[in-house]
Write a protein that binds this DNA or RNA. Structure first.
Length: 204
DNA sequence: TGCCAGGCCCTCTTTAGGGCCTT
């Protein structure tokens, strides 16, 4: 059974190219749909967290002041993930911070990413919203702590990933739902999803 | 101090505009 690393960052803003930095990272390691390990740490990037971000995440400047340096945390996170393919909700966001923070730590970011937001848009067009919290309510996923903290959100994203895999198995007869299938589905038009999966099952 | 950027998706589209999603 293959491993998947579900990651969530809390940050000072939306864009690492605009100077925003990570303040917390959490990674849930799945073996199949089973959580087998967790990684979570605040990190001190040496930048000030805006007040509205403190209110949004609950992560304060005082909290990160006593946290380990970002480079050390990212080195540990990279070792924790290893070669496992990664998943995040709105992965474009987390992938940018994963790459930017690892570059600062002088480490490569080679893991492929799949995205539960893109997958949910394909598979659950009837959902009222594709925000992580809304999808959790839509699927009645268990809540695990304060939203907008890294580990709680990573746990919810992992549960959402398991729901997605479950539905792919149930609706399309997919056996082991591999990461490359997720990438193919999220990259196809919604109406093309059944055809993409059928081609995948034929070994194409 | 504050809702920044980037990418996806839909439609009153494609020579574009705007909403959604992440912090």
């Amino acid at each position: 059974m293959s491993l998947t690393a579900v990651i969530d960052f809390e940050t000072t803003g939306l864009s690492p190219t605009q100077g925003d930095r990570a303040t917390e990272v959490a990674i849930v390691l799945l073996e199949g749909d089973q959580v087998v390990d967790r990684f979570q740490s605040l990190m001190n990037a040496g930048v000030r967290i805006p007040a509205f971000i403190e209110a949004y995440t609950g992560i304060t400047n005082a909290m990160v002041a006593s946290a380990p340096p970002a480079e050390a945390v990212m080195a540990d996170a990279a070792r924790f993930v290893g070669d496992a393919p990664m998943v995040a909700h709105n992965a474009a966001f987390d992938r940018r911070f994963w790459a930017a923070e690892l570059e600062r730590a002088d480490r490569p970011a080679t893991q492929p990413f799949a995205c539960t937001l893109l997958l949910s848009r394909r598979l659950y067009p009837q959902a009222p919203s594709h925000k992580l919290g809304s999808l959790a309510a839509f699927h009645a996923l268990p809540s695990s702590g304060r939203a907008h903290r890294a580990l709680a959100d990573a746990e919810v994203a992992a549960a959402l990933l398991s729901q997605i895999r479950h539905d792919l198995r149930r609706q399309y007869g997919v056996g082991e739902c591999r990461h490359d299938l997720l990438v193919q589905v999220q990259g196809s038009a919604r109406k093309a999803v059944p055809k993409v999966i059928a081609r995948y099952l034929e070994g194409g």
